[in-house]
Simulated assay, not measured.
Amino acid sequence: MYRSLFPRDVFAEMDRLQREMQQAFDLSPTIRGFGRNGFPALNIGGTPQTVEIYAFAPGVDPSSLEVHLERGLLTIAGQRGKTLPEADAQAAVHINERFEGAFRRVLTLPDDADPDAVTARYRDGVLHITVQRRASSQPRRITVQ
């Protein structure tokens, strides 16, 4: 009922505005959380040896993905193309909920993350990033003599 009162893309515009405000004020989530409703959606976890990041980005060309790690900040950026055909100008779009365009997510990694030991691979719409933790931060047993 309420959707009929507003233009059909008002909610998409509000979502875009929220993403731009987060980027403008650099409201970067840490691995503990904070960021919500960004694209790509993230699952972050870890082991004593690694930090595991899963970015769910279906429909993204892997060549458009960029992963950067600088000064403890991990940045995932890319471009997601259009899904609706533009060839038929007579076609009416009733619902278009899929995000299109450029995206960027920034995460603060823990202090023990090793910037020289990062791997990233994209498969079936999921970008999996593994960041090794520094060996000096690993728990170890000290023998008492």
Score class of each variant (00 low, 15 high):
Glu52Arg: 06
Asp9Trp: 09
Arg140Gly: 12
Pro110Gln: 03
Thr50Glu: 11
Ser4Ala: 14
Lys82Gly: 10
Ala91Ile: 10
Arg80His: 09
Ser4Pro: 03
Phe6Glu: 13
Arg32Asp: 14
Ala24Trp: 08
Arg80Thr: 07
Leu5Gly: 07
Pro29Val: 03
Leu5Asp: 09
Ile44Glu: 00
Gln49Gly: 01
Arg123Thr: 10
Gly125Val: 10
Asp114Gln: 03
Gly35Asn: 09
Arg104Asp: 08
Asp15Lys: 09
Ala24Val: 14
Asn37Pro: 00
Ser64Ala: 15
Thr108Leu: 13
Val118Leu: 02
Leu42Arg: 05
Phe25Glu: 08
Ala55Lys: 01
Pro85Trp: 06
Val51Ile: 15
Asn43Pro: 00
Phe11Met: 14
Gly101Asp: 09
Pro110Met: 05
Val93Lys: 02
Ile76Asn: 00
Met14Gly: 03
Arg104Gly: 04
Gly35Ala: 13
Tyr122Arg: 02
Pro139Trp: 06
Asp15His: 12
Met21His: 12
Leu65Lys: 03
Asp124Ser: 14
Leu42Lys: 03
Gly81Ser: 14
Thr83Tyr: 09
Val106Met: 07
His128Tyr: 13
Leu69Ala: 09
Ala102Ser: 12
Ala12Gly: 15
His128Leu: 03
Asp61Pro: 02
Ala41Met: 04
Val67Gly: 06
Gly46Ala: 02
Ala12Ser: 15
Ile142Phe: 11
Gln90Leu: 11
Phe34Ile: 12
Gln138His: 04
Ile31Asn: 01
Ile95Cys: 07
Ala87Leu: 09
Arg140Tyr: 06
Ser136His: 12
Gly125Arg: 07
Arg140His: 15
Ala92Val: 10
Phe34Arg: 10
Phe6Cys: 10
Glu86Ile: 13
Ser28Leu: 03
Ala12Tyr: 07
